[in-house]
Design a protein around this nucleic acid. Structure first.
Length: 425
DNA sequence: TCTGGGGTCCTAGGACCC
DNA sequence: TCTGGGGTCCTAGGACCC
């Protein structure tokens, strides 16, 4: 049986979420900014039309924003996550299997649907329902492989006359679309690969699809080879409807102001450990390995502001999900890579080497009572913090946090009670 | 002055073992 | 003193994604 995938993607998702609760902003250009209000990470269609590019630093386009009275928001992740969950629940009801691919995209398995209905019509149904129930506009791409479904979706987004749905099940239509799209629009082909592919004369998606797989494998990799097969309608990447367990958890952040003192950096690292461990417990995992990293700004003039970047990993003697275990090691690792005299712009920690909670072998000399007691303590802490965020934490992360990030343009928490509200001081 | 955060997968090379 | 080749495991780095 031929496989059928649909990719459903929300249009301008973060900007659309902000607009949804501000009817006064219809037809106004809206942008959403990254942490620290540093870069543009989402634009409404009006903002796109002004030529505001994805990822551009705000300070470079400040005049443009003011001149056209563009409305800017700090990113309100709690709001977007909540809206995303609503969209996904709606999609779930319409398809037997769904893979939540990112906050604003999902793959649906529509295999077998083609015998009872017109696939494009079903795409329009999806679009209408999400629009009506949630108020978010989506585009739908339908094809026999995920990579082609991505391209179909791109077509649906780019050409309004498609009505937001493109059915790419026929080979003829696949080739027609691929001939029009540059190779860098293909899922899995980024900047570097685009450059290398262009060097050997491959410029369009179709030229990549027609390239001999053997040569692609030799000159590039198995990954690119798989992409070529997917472009030819051969599905190599299946639907992952059960989310795989995480292999690492990262918590990192650029500072609102440069950090020059070790005590401050200790506080910041403690904060990241705290956040990562909450996620770890949420995943019902334990980790053994922790990495601490820090760096100065790669963008500044290195004559005046020299560059330094370093990281160091350490291991616990047994897997744990106890914040205190990681705080202890992290602080030692930080001491080992810290150098005085630099203006640090960013730091973070990463947890890795995960073990399933139930399958973890306890440390030989730790009584099981102690372990039970620790995990109960952490559980209570997480529960309280879920009710009232940041009410309970370890003193090591500090109470002042002058290095914390800037979020000056945050929208209110429209749909969530506590999450997303700035901390009350 | 001001440039995000969180992930995955693959590969090359070093360490180590037999 | 001479000194092989193959396998495995781990890590760092590169590339990609949203």
């Amino acid at each position: 049986m031929t496989q059928v995938f649909a990719l459903v993607d929300c249009n301008n998702f973060y900007a659309s979420c902000e607009k949804l609760f501000r009817p006064d902003l219809v037809n106004r250009a809206v942008v959403v900014l990254s942490n620290n209000d540093g870069c543009v990470v989402a634009r409404s269609k009006e903002a796109k039309a002004m030529g505001i590019k994805m990822g551009v630093p705000v300070f470079q386009i400040r005049e443009l924003l003011e001149k056209h009275q563009v409305v800017a928001f700090s990113s309100n992740y709690a709001l977007y996550a909540d809206m995303s969950a609503r969209v996904m629940r709606t999609l779930e009801e319409m398809s037997p299997a769904l893979e939540v691919y990112s906050i604003d995209e999902a793959f649906l398995d529509l295999s077998g649907f083609e015998s009872t209905m017109n696939l494009a019509d079903f795409g329009y149904q999806i679009r209408e329902r999400v629009q009506q129930w949630i108020g978010i506009t989506v585009c739908v791409g339908i094809a026999p492989s995920k990579t082609l479904a991505k391209l179909a979706n791109h077509g649906a987004k780019s050409w309004p006359k498609t009505g937001g749905v493109v059915d790419l099940m026929s080979n003829e239509r696949q080739r027609k679309l691929m001939a029009l799209l540059p190779v860098n629009e293909v899922w899995g082909i980024g900047n570097r690969l685009t450059k290398r592919l262009e060097d050997i004369g491959i410029r369009t998606a179709l030229e990549l699809a027609d390239a001999p797989t053997k040569m692609i494998r030799q000159q590039f990799s198995v990954v690119v080879e798989r992409t070529v097969m997917e472009l030819n309608g051969e599905s190599c990447i299946g639907l992952e409807d059960i989310p795989p367990t995480k292999k690492e958890i990262v918590s990192s952040r650029a500072f609102g102001e440069r950090v020059t003192e070790l005590t401050m950096m200790h506080e910041a690292v403690a904060e990241y450990v705290h956040r990562a461990c909450i996620k770890l417990r949420h995943e019902r995992c334990q980790a053994k390995r922790i990495t601490v990293f820090l760096r100065t700004s790669p963008f500044s003039d290195h004559q005046r502001d020299p560059y330094y970047s370093n990281s160091r990993s350490g291991e616990l003697s047994y897997p744990s999900d106890d914040t205190r275990d990681f705080l202890h090691v992290a602080s030692q690792l930080l001491e080992a890579i810290w150098k005085d005299g630099y203006r640090y712009a960013k730091a973070g920690i990463m947890l890795s080497d995960f073990y399933n909670h139930s399958a973890v072998q306890q440390e030989l000399f730790l009584s099981s009572d102690v372990v039970r007691c620790n995990s109960a303590l952490m559980g209570v802490m997480d529960q309280i913090n879920e009710q009232i965020p940041n009410s309970l934490y370890f003193a090591s992360k500090g109470t002042n946090q002058t290095w914390g990030m800037k979020r000056e343009l945050l929208s209110p928490a429209f749909t969530t009670s506590w999450k997303g509200l700035p901390r009350v001081r």
